[in-house]
Design a protein around this nucleic acid. Structure first.
Lengths: 251, 251
DNA sequence: CGTGTGGTTGAACAATGTCAAGCTCTGTGG
DNA sequence: CCACAGAGCTTGACATTGTTCAACCACACG
């Protein structure tokens, strides 16, 4: 199932030349902050599509920032039922929950090949001591995740199947677009099984639901993913206001 | 509908004698931290049952810690469908999301009379600058909320109606018990409408689902609330591991 | 060539929602 | 003290939504 290949490198991209920092989506950093983070970064990690980055129950010594690629966080029940909680994309810090509170209570898997910046959990407290604005950013990052989960919960709990699907695709589209991820592929690299497990639906019903959206010319389902034709139309159908457009911090 | 009565007091309970601090559930504080927080606290606020504490879209200048009472966070769709996101109880910090990120994107309402400690948003950065361990606690608090939302999402997305209901009641029971909230009443002060809006079900179906749990002698539905007969049984039925039993910080 | 993964479809069935009515409290005003 | 109204709970009949099962298809890959 999961090809668990992972390769560790020494530091390749220095934070000062991080390709993500030039995106208008992220806030600017002080030189001092940048230097600190560069020292905080221990190296880079490459994982294959399908690889598990974190497993529920683990106590990881590391946390990561996604440099490139797509992945998702999920939880499972004992009998195998799976719920996808959220998707991770470049600039996202993963493993913070586990680093702050101890044990990881969800798993994280790669949807595409992913490259990661590696940080060490034990050095987190140094960050809090020496760089209060970065500490604030960490709380900001956790609050943002909370906010997104609020919206997902509203979606799964109260939106109809069509609305839910429309919301999910609109959400992924907005995030990916802000990160300029559609320069090469234009396709969101998920299967209908992923959509089903995110929306709390069966694959069969998900398939029929996506067909309805395709019939309305809102999206197109390709091999290995989804192409968005009308992101605003999807958001409107879902009754969703869209994401914050302001700049956000990242570590 | 909402009786919006609220009364502001000067500081009544000094943080050094906060009744919550003596609970084994919370972590101990340094004298220095306690002094800082005591200065951070601007007063106390009393709100009636049914009152709205935060409204979606507002930019509140304050954040609060619950001293006593029950409440809940929720979001609504334009046509009125409501999703309850989580419940708030003594020791919970509310309004952090809004304080960190700007606008509040959910509402908060009191289930019972609530007393609140009042803090000012503008002084948050002082906390980050002067007390790194407290800053860490704030991130911890945000991460904890995230973790709870993860579990809720799993519940609403993948558990059956009976499992969901069992999980919710077990969850509320465990939290309230850890806070010694059942000394007086033994009853969780919610209506079946609240349960329905938390689980993403209709009230009618919720009623029938709760009857099944009552038939199994797991709980008892009273006027104005729910009494738990077998918390472990509920958790087991839901396939839920329960909350962390460790101490947690609070501000 | 097989084989596997992911997508598609229809039919039977189960879970949940909607509607409508009635019931039991509690609080309120006459 | 009684009548009434409203909130919350309960129940049954029926409609809708979503699930399960069982095929089958198309394509990529070894």
């Amino acid at each position: 199932m999961a090809k668990a290949a992972a390769t560790m490198h020494g530091q390749r991209t220095p934070c000062q030349h991080c390709p993500l920092r030039s995106l208008p989506h992220f806030r600017e950093f002080e030189r001092d902050e940048l230097n600190f983070i560069s020292g905080f970064k221990k190296g880079e990690l490459l994982v294959d599509a399908g690889a598990t980055i974190f497993l529920e129950g683990a106590h990881s010594a590391h946390l990561f920032t996604i440099l490139s690629g797509w992945g998702f966080r999920y939880k499972t029940l004992e009998d195998g039922r799976r719920q996808i909680l959220n998707y991770v994309m470049p600039g996202d810090l993963i493993g913070l929950q586990g680093s702050i509170m101890g044990e990881m209570q969800h798993s994280t898997e790669a949807l595409s090949p992913i490259s990661l910046c590696v940080f060490e959990r034990t050095e987190l407290m140094t960050l809090y001591n020496s760089h209060p604005p970065l500490a604030f950013d960490l709380t900001w990052i956790a609050s943002r995740e909370e906010r997104i989960l609020d919206e997902h919960l509203l979606s799964v709990g109260r939106r109809s199947a069509v609305e839910r699907a429309a919301y999910l695709i609109a959400y992924l589209h907005q995030r990916a677009r802000a990160l300029h991820l559609f320069n090469s592929s234009k396709v969101i690299p998920i299967t209908q099984q992923h959509v089903a497990d995110t929306l709390g639906l069966s694959v069969v019903h998900t398939n029929k639901t996506l067909k309805k959206l395709a019939a309305r010319k809102l999206l197109l389902w390709q091999e290995r993913g989804c192409e968005v034709l009308d992101g605003d139309g999807l958001a409107e159908l879902a009754g969703w206001d869209g994401l914050d457009s302001g700049k956000r911090p990242f570590i």
